[in-house]
Amino acid sequence: MENQRDPSGKTPGQGPLLSLINKIKALVKTIFSSSFKIGLVYFAAGLVPALIIGWLFFPALLYSKQTQPMNFNHALHMDPEIVSEIQGDTETERCLYCHSFRNDGTFTGIPEIGVCSECHKDDDFPLGESEEEELLINEYVTNKREIPWLSYSRQPDCVYFSHIAHIELGKLECTTCHGNRGKNQVLPAYEKNRISGYSRNIWGKKISGLKKDTWDSMKMDDCAACHKEKGHEENNACFTCHK
C-alpha cells in the first residue's frame, strides 16, 4: 500500500471522501500501533499525576489549616426559639444582633468578648451544658480576654469595604457574600494561603475558582461583577474599594 501512494499522498482514482476515510483508518491504525500506545502511556504518566498534583496535592499544600480557638454554634445562636434575645424577621437582622454596626457606621465584624458576656455572664449558671460554654466563661469571659478568632472573610489591607453601604443602602443579605454561615453548627477549619496569606474563603473553597453561588468567592472580580449587575458601575472606581 505504501508503494501505491503518489507524492501528493493521494491514492490514484479515488475521491476525497475515500481519502479522508483512509486517513482516519491510518490514524486509528497508528493509535493502536504499539509504539503509539506506549507513547500514550508516557503521556498519561505525565498527565495524570500532574492532574492529581494540581487538583489534590497542590491545594492541600497551598493552604495551611488552623482550627479556631473554640467552637461556635451559629445555628444554635440564630434560632430565636433557643436564644430569645436574638430577634429579627430576616436572617440579616439576626446576624446584626452580634455582628453589629457602631455609632460611627463602622462594622464590628467578629464580636468582642463583651458581646458574648452580655448573655454568658455568670459562671454559676451557664446557659447550656456544652464544654464550649464552660471554656468561654472560664477562659475568656472571666479573664476579660478576647478570643483569638481567625477571620474567614478578612480582606487584605489594600481593600476598603463598607458593610453599612452594602447592608443599609445596597440591601444585600449577609448570605450573598458569606453564604450559609449562620446554619453551621461547627466552625470549619481556617485555611490560610501560604503564599498570599489570604483566607481560603476569599478565593473560594473550590480550587477551580469556578463560582456557583454568589458567596463562593470574594475577589475583586466578584465585587465588580456584582456592581455591574446591579447598575452601580460608578462604584467600580478604584478608590471606592481601595485604600
Binding site: F43, G46, L47, V48, P49, A50, L51, I53, G54, W55, F58, P59, I207, S208, G209
Partner: peptide, 8 residues
C-alpha cells in the same frame, strides 16, 4: 498538559 488543566 495536566498541569495546565489543573489550577496549579
Amino acid at each position: 498538559v495536566g498541569t495546565g488543566l489543573s489550577p496549579l
